[in-house]
Structure formats: structure tokens, C-alpha cells
Computed example of a mutant assay.
Amino acid sequence: MNEEIMRKRVYGADHEDPDPGPRPGRAYVELVGGPLDGLLLDVTDRPDEQRRTAVPLSTEIGRYGPGGHALYGPRPGAPRRYDWQGDTP
């Protein structure tokens, strides 16, 4: 993994975790735009066909507040980036 990726925080990591960054041997995509911009999403256990579809991610900082979700999907031609597609309740 390159140094820039190693400094990023992984989505779902505990705020108290002294090392919330990526772990060796795991696969990540970068979330781009929206409330989770810049975080990494661990996709290691997602089958390839699921990696090509959008995923709703829980967030309290989106349009719908606590209980809401931000929808991110793969960027065409750049499978290591998932673009924000909007918020859902």
C-alpha cells in the first residue's frame, strides 16, 4: 500500500482506535465526495460482482442524521474509488 493510503482512516474504525488505518492483507476502496469523503472502505470479503454495485453505509453526518445512510458506488474506469451517489433514510 502506498504511504498516502496508509494515513487514511477506515470506515467503521472505532474513534478511540489508536491505529484506525488500513491493515495489511486487506483490500480497500476510497470513498469520494459526500459525508464519508476520504475514508477507506474494506471490500476484502465482498465478492467481485458485489464490488461493482453501490453500497449504503451508515452515517450520522449525512442528510438524514442518525439512522441515515450514504450511498457509494464504484467509479467507472476507477474501481478503487467509490463515488457518493446521495443519502438515504
Results as ranks from 00 to 15, higher is better:
R51D: 04
M6H: 08
P35A: 11
D48N: 12
E16F: 11
R75G: 00
P35Y: 09
Y28G: 06
V10N: 01
D83S: 06
T59M: 04
Y28W: 08
Y72P: 00
R23W: 08
R63L: 06
Y82P: 03
A54G: 04
Y64W: 09
R80M: 03
P35H: 12
I5Y: 10
P66T: 10
A13Y: 02
V55E: 15
R9Y: 08
R80Q: 09
G65N: 02
P20T: 02
S58F: 09
R80L: 04
V32S: 06
L36S: 10
R26D: 01
Q85F: 03
H15M: 14
G12T: 06
V10Y: 03
G25Q: 07
Y64E: 03
D19F: 10
V32F: 05
L41E: 00
D37G: 00
D14Y: 13
D45F: 05
G77M: 14
G34P: 00
G38W: 05
G62W: 12
G34H: 01
G12S: 02
P22Q: 03
P74K: 15
G67H: 01
G68K: 12
Y72W: 02
R9G: 05
P76I: 14
Q50P: 04
R23L: 12
G38P: 05
R26T: 06
Q50M: 12
T59V: 04
D83E: 11
H69D: 07
I5S: 12
Q50E: 15
W84Q: 03
R9S: 10
E49W: 13
M1F: 13
D45Q: 00
P35M: 12
R51M: 11
P79T: 14
D83M: 07
L40S: 00
G38N: 10
E49Y: 12
E30F: 07
A54I: 01
